[in-house]
């Protein structure tokens, strides 16, 4: 197990370095830089040169990259060019907002979606299945931003209420935090509940057709026990992979929702930093997304091995 983790971590490091080169090159390829953003239509050439020197933009790109990498491996992601604050702090606080939202969506969707999938999978073709299938089609086809906007306007119209516009961390007040996150969670959860339900339903239908399930049923094992012990256990492996993928997908999807509901998450940090050409923050934020994706994949793999003994050999 230790060797497996070490091997995976080494591979992840290579992925990270390669990805950071790509990210660095892409970010620098965007026209304009922070100096142009700062001076707008103002400023003079001498001043621009001074500012470029200040930010190290006068150096060749590979040297800028190496300087950044040198800091990053020591845990120093640099300082935001626009705010003068450490990137690590900015990225961490934004990441926590996105992470909390994504995690809540992941869990809530699973808690609702998996049982729904089990129930309708068991009675596929029934009336309930048709209703759930219709919901799934609509939820899977509807863009998240549209659901977010409709919820925002709909709730405002019906209840004359909208979420507070200034974010409160759960460490300060759980109630206030959840009040703010309620509509964003709902906006993202529609799609994910449908995805879970669809995924589980499909696997239940397949499992119920398998020899071992049919044999168990013939032995008189009650359906409820059959579902919980045989079927659910067997879909745990693909479900864990699925959850990992969903989590990364949600983390990516929160960008739009953060913008609609004004949440100070990673997406908004990234967009604002990119608009200001605040490269250290852009790189730091993308690095955080990459690390999150790699970590989730690693956790899924470890989980996979834990529940499927065949993979341990």
């Amino acid at each position: 197990m230790v060797r497996f983790v070490a091997r995976r971590l080494a591979a992840s490091l290579v992925t990270l370095i390669l990805a950071s080169i790509v990210v660095f090159a892409m970010v620098r390829a965007v026209p304009g830089d922070i100096v142009e953003q700062m001076l707008g239509q103002l400023g003079g050439t001498e001043g621009e040169a001074t500012l470029r020197r200040f930010f190290g933009l006068d150096q060749p790109i590979y040297l800028q990259y190496l300087a950044w990498l040198g800091g990053a491996v020591q845990g120093d992601l640099g300082v935001s060019w626009r705010l003068g604050r450490p990137v690590a702090g900015l990225v961490t606080s934004a990441f926590l907002v996105s992470f909390q939202l994504s995690l809540l969506v992941l869990v809530i969707s699973a808690v609702i979606g998996v049982p729904v999938g089990l129930i309708v999978g068991r009675r596929s073709g029934g009336a309930l299945d048709s209703i759930v299938q219709s919901f799934n089609v609509v939820a899977l086809a509807t863009p998240v931003f549209w659901i977010g906007l409709m919820l925002l306007f709909g709730v405002s119209e019906v209840f004359s209420w909208s979420p507070p516009t200034i974010y409160v961390s759960p460490f300060r007040s759980v109630a206030d935090n959840l009040t703010i996150l309620l509509l964003p969670i709902l906006s993202l959860a529609f799609l994910q509940i449908a995805a879970y339900a669809q995924f589980v339903r499909q696997h239940v239908i397949e499992a119920l057709g398998q020899e071992y399930v049919r044999a168990a049923r013939a032995r008189g094992v009650p359906m409820r026990r059959l579902l919980m012990t045989h079927v659910l256990r067997n879909i745990l492996v693909p479900l864990s992979t699925f959850m990992g993928l969903i989590f990364i997908q949600i983390l990516g999807g929160v960008v739009v929702i953060e913008s609609i509901f004004g949440l100070p998450g990673l997406g908004r940090l990234l967009v604002n930093a990119l608009n200001a050409r605040d490269f250290p923050v852009v790189q730091g934020a993308l690095l955080a997304v990459l690390v999150a994706a790699i970590t989730v994949n690693l956790i899924v793999d470890l989980f996979y091995r834990a529940i499927d003994p065949r993979l341990r050999t």
Binding site: L42, G43, G44, G47, L51
Partner: peptide
Amino acid sequence: PENGTIGARDFA
């Protein structure tokens, strides 16, 4: 102008 300020030209 060496300071890279936004008003360098305004007050030149």
